[in-house]
């Protein structure tokens, strides 16, 4: 297992964001971490990226307990805008080259071209869609073992979404990478996924192989998600 969470709990103040969660992710697969807003998806990714630490339990990447240094092995695309507005696209790429030993500038150049991003343009001149594309270029240009994407589609139009799906499929290295995508836009990414994990207010309430779910239960991920979530709402 490339990524492993064992009995992990995370609290912010008194509120539990994750309660005693155990999960394992293997190389070569794309996982969808699905749940409503505030269910603990982002927290899970941040724990794997070493940006927050658990109050209980253990988070491991490649058999190493996660610390801030895990960013050598983990690429993380945040849902937030994290760029310096006065940087140009090219300067942003150079910054990434300076920060990450596994960053491949050639791949970045190729991706920028495919996404039609001008390296000379300032970040503040980019549209939201192009900032979304740039974030993906930077995340995909790293040869990291783990790729974490937090809401990569949020607020982007269908054209941008399609180009993001295409570049994910073109540039993920399935022999070496583990990809985890957190999103509540389930329909969008279902065909991309191997496994779907439903997280609901801090609990993992299900994990299914997407095709097995269809084969054995005749359900799409979205239908399964809705029925499982409805059951949980009923219990609350």
């Amino acid at each position: 297992m490339t990524v492993k969470l064992s009995n992990v709990s995370k609290r912010y103040g008194k509120d539990f964001s994750l309660k005693n969660v155990s999960l394992a992710f293997e190389t070569g697969k794309i996982y969808g971490l699905l749940g409503p807003n505030g269910s603990g998806k982002s927290t899970t990714l941040k724990l794997i990226a070493g940006l927050v630490y658990p109050n209980g339990g253990k988070v491991e990447v490649d058999n190493e307990e996660v610390t801030r240094k895990i960013c050598r092995k983990v690429a993380y695309l945040t849902e937030l805008d994290m760029f310096y507005p006065s940087f140009t696209v090219g300067e942003m790429v150079e910054f990434y080259v300076s920060q990450f030993a596994d960053f491949d500038p050639k791949k970045a150049e190729q991706l920028l071209q495919e996404m039609k991003l001008d390296p000379g343009k300032k970040i503040k001149q980019l549209s939201k869609g192009n900032r979304g594309r740039l974030k993906l270029v930077l995340a995909l240009s790293r040869k990291s073992q783990v790729l974490l994407l937090d809401e990569p589609f949020s607020g982007l139009d269908p054209m941008v979404r399609d180009s993001i799906v295409k570049s994910l499929l073109s540039y993920i290295n399935f022999d070496e990478q583990t990809v985890i995508i957190a999103t509540h836009e389930i329909d969008e990414i279902e065909p991309l996924l191997d496994e779907a994990i439903v997280i609901f207010y801090g609990d993992i309430i299900g994990q299914k192989n997407v095709e097995t779910l269809r084969e054995e239960e005749g359900l799409s991920v979205l239908e399964w998600f809705k029925s499982t979530a409805a059951q949980m709402e009923g219990k609350k």
Binding site: V165, E188, P191, V210, E211, R214, L219, S220, E223
Partner: peptide, 13 residues
């Protein structure tokens, strides 16, 4: 392009 798939049938089929 992402195509639409029926919910009840495996995508590979």
């Amino acid at each position: 392009m992402t195509k639409d798939f029926q919910a009840s049938k495996p995508i590979y089929i």
